[in-house]
Design a protein around this nucleic acid. Sequence first.
DNA 1: AGCACGCCGACT
DNA 2: GTCGGCGTGCTC
Length: 813
Amino acid sequence: VVSRLVSVAVPVPTLGALTYSIPDAMPIPPPGARVVVPLGPRTLTGIVTGLASATPHFKVRDVHRVIDADAFVPPDVVALTEWVAKYYLAGPGAALAAALPPRALTGRVSHFKTSRVAALTAAGRDAADRLAALPRGVDVRAADLPVRLRRSRGRTGTVPGEAEPHPTGCAGLPRSLASLGARQREALRVLASAARGLATSVLSERGVPAATLTRLSALGLVALRDEQVERDPFWRAALASPEDEPGREPTEAQRAALDHLVPWAWRRTFHVALVHGVTGSGKTEVYLRLADAVRRSGRGVLVLVPEIALTPQVAALFRGRFGAAVAIQHSGLSMGERHDQWHRIRRGDVDIVIGTRSAVFAPLARVGLIIVDEEHDASYKQEEIPRYHARDVAVMRGKLASALVVLGSATPTLESYANAQAGRYSLVTLDRRVLERPLARVDVVNMRDEIAAEGPDVVLSRAVRAALAARLERGEQALVLLNRRGFAAAVFCRQCGASVDCPNCSVALTVHTGGSRFRPAAQGARGATPARAETRAGGPGRGDPGWRARCHYCNYAADVPRTCPVCAAPYMTQVGVGTERVEAEIRAAFPHARVARVDRDAVRRKGSLVRTLSRVARKDLDILIGTQMIAKGHDFPDVTLVGVISADGGLGLPDFRAAERTFQLLTQVAGRAGRGERAGEAIIQSLVPHHYSIQLARTQDYRVFFEKEMDFRRAMRYPPHVAMVNVVVRGRSLSEAMTRARALAELLRSRRGFVVLGPAPAPLVRLRGEHRAQFFLKGTSRNAMREALEAALTARADLARHATVDVDPQTVL
DNA sequence: AGCACGCCGACT
DNA sequence: GTCGGCGTGCTC
């Protein structure tokens, strides 16, 4: 008797693969096919992961329906998600969900999204033609335009607004083209070039709001219809058209890199290469040529980038070089767009996929090359279940597909560089910038000296102010980095010392200027402390609606109190500088400079980041202030100065990667300077200027940093010297969390192959109202840790529900 | 994740 | 006296 049992992964985070039977009347679905199954009182869609052989000791239920005769998710991607589920101790359903477009399983059965499309009607086309025929700037008079429009009689169920061209220029026209506003005319002009119409979302990005279309529709000039369209996610990457020079010969270093990498790609065996190329060394050109070679050999290429919205250049370059053969996957796309792209890939319409971390699961066939650009970037780690690291998943996918995996960075993670040193990866080094452009000179300013000279409130050092002034004078651009958003980091009482904390989390609230136009009174001259924030002195907190205290973890917000909530003293003082404060200082110091800010608050609106970045590219901005967002791989040739307001933010954190993060950030941001013809300069402000991560970023000496940091990790037994797992346990009180954590840790301590450290209260001891305790597993055997954890979490499901397991944690807060 | 069951506060 | 809060358990 042939087994008619299948394993099905269901979109339920904590559940393993479940066994169902296939009724005789149905064909056995292959791995990757979707099936509709009953689960308790529910009915949901799952993915077949394979045949189930065992004779179960529970009653097996029938599959309701087999949706796909063939794999919906490619079988190798199913295998990859099974590996992810195991490695990261997530349920197979959760891992599979990461590989599917959003709501593929949980949404409605219909997977098709429609777009509202606007197109010109006959009358609209007529009107657009007439408008186009008019010379620009001519005042349009009603009498010249014999188009008559009448309002809909409003019969229900019909398209409102029929228009009819009037035979002659007749008097008494109720409406005419002359009455069309500028927006409406613009809409007609834009639509005239799109015979089949344009999606309203596209139109709104081009400055035609939906209201205008509704109005034109009522006038009968535009017809609105709902249509299933192939959405083009590239329209939003308006920055696009970076200067691509495909004809240019690769540099000698690029040639050498390709001579090493291309043969590996031909070999069709699994191999990992680390490309360590300094900022501006032309890694992207290597990727493009390598991708071209692999694509020509009939195999697929997967390109992972940290965040497309931040670095649209790489995607745009690939799109420019390879055109429609490229698909894009990232979180900035609408659900419909992501869905479309996923299906394009699955159908085999493309052979190159570019995307953020989730694209590592793209349903691309015959993968021959996987590129992980900026492999050090923290955004490759997903901080929700399944807590996978896309770089590591990429390596595993390469292994399963016998593909070449290329990891690229100017500041590789210790993990990757250690693998290269150990010979597990090959190492390709590009240690010069293209065209022999020098790396930026980096200076470190000791802020203690500045404080001594200028007072405790100094934000911009004399060196940074002078350098900014020089850039403005020369018409060059500057980036100013501070990796902390908001205006001030905390508010505290100078009488009793109490700080204003989040009621739900164990953190101080951050002061924001709020969404209002309000700018802090920054009337000070050079060296003044424009936004010195004391409530009694007219700073924030005097009931000004612009000032808010916000929690960056749970979004709690309150007005900044003017008196101390504890002792009622009116001496609330702000401490710690954020990007909003930096912006205020710079605007005060350079009132004529064109300044913009980029951080998560400033770019909340869709497209505003792209707009700001393109303003930099167009030289429409002099100074760009921002968080690490501005440190990513941008290529702005006229930026000759990078200022770092404080390099110290990360160094105080109780995180063993603090130094590595600081070194990476400083090296990367310094790499934004001097990429064009003029040399660049970076100035780093710090209270601990002699810290090795700062000093080695100054000399931009990766190798020395690597050796030094590896020594530290070895001595302290931290990754990559050992493997680590972090377990966070939650409870209503800290003692409850600690009790649970102790019980779980005790179950693990009896095992061999690793050690258990803790439990202890987590650094963020309270988060969103929950108390948190944590412990670590450290050891050389991931298998031992995984098996022990699986056993412990299964044995104590009551504890497991309050525990979160993070394998290879990137942050231990 | 849902959805049910099951015990403790403020209302018809 | 009930409605409903979410803690706990279960889903092939």
